[in-house]
Design a protein around this nucleic acid. Structure first.
Length: 165
DNA sequence: TATTCCTGTCCTG
DNA sequence: CAGGACAGGAATA
């Protein structure tokens, strides 16, 4: 059975939950209610043994510091879960620098599938590692913010924070 | 602006 | 295996 540790804390965007397996971070969730965040985690990993560990090797404070200043890279291992296609999208996403944005069409082009625009959007939406996989930096080609798993308002604030350094 | 069509991947029955 | 959902995009009126 898989073993997952998690902790919750507050950051500039509200509550944050970070969870990790022995391979690395497997979830970073944002929200307004810590209990709801835990419930979301347990729903995602139904067959895992999940325990609360508010510190787990200072990872929580690193995650919170990263969320408050996403310009600096997060140097923690990630335990990515996804199909081959999703991993390609996420890898391309991590090439996008803080303060920059790309369109879904541009992202699709970068992974060699320029017509798979909607599929790319779906892969972004499937990401569970908020900010570490910067899906908030993907916007519509016409400049609209489009959607965000953790709320368009948080997406807006993240981009604003990154733009202003 | 709104409607319509095309699109790739994932999920469900 | 079929059908539907979707954080898109372009063409049309």
């Amino acid at each position: 059975m898989e073993h997952i540790r998690f902790g919750v804390a507050t950051c500039e965007l509200g509550w944050v939950l970070a969870a990790a397996t022995d391979r690395g971070l497997c979830a970073i969730e944002l929200g307004d209610d810590p209990a709801a965040l835990e419930a979301r985690l347990r729903a995602q990993f139904l067959d895992a043994h999940i325990v609360r560990d508010p510190d787990f090797g200072h990872w929580m404070e690193q995650v919170v510091a990263f969320l408050n200043a996403p310009q600096r890279a997060l140097s923690l291992p990630l335990d990515l879960r996804g199909t081959a296609f999703q991993r390609r999208v996420w890898a391309a996403l991590r090439e996008v620098q803080a303060g920059e944005t790309v369109s879904y069409a541009e992202l699709a082009a970068r992974i060699g599938k320029p017509s798979a625009v909607r599929a790319v959007a779906g892969a972004c939406a499937a990401n569970h590692l908020a900010v570490a996989i910067p899906c908030h930096r993907v916007v519509r080609k016409n400049g609209d913010l489009s959607g965000y798993r953790w709320g368009v308002e948080r997406k807006r604030r993240l981009l604003e924070k990154e733009r202003n350094g």
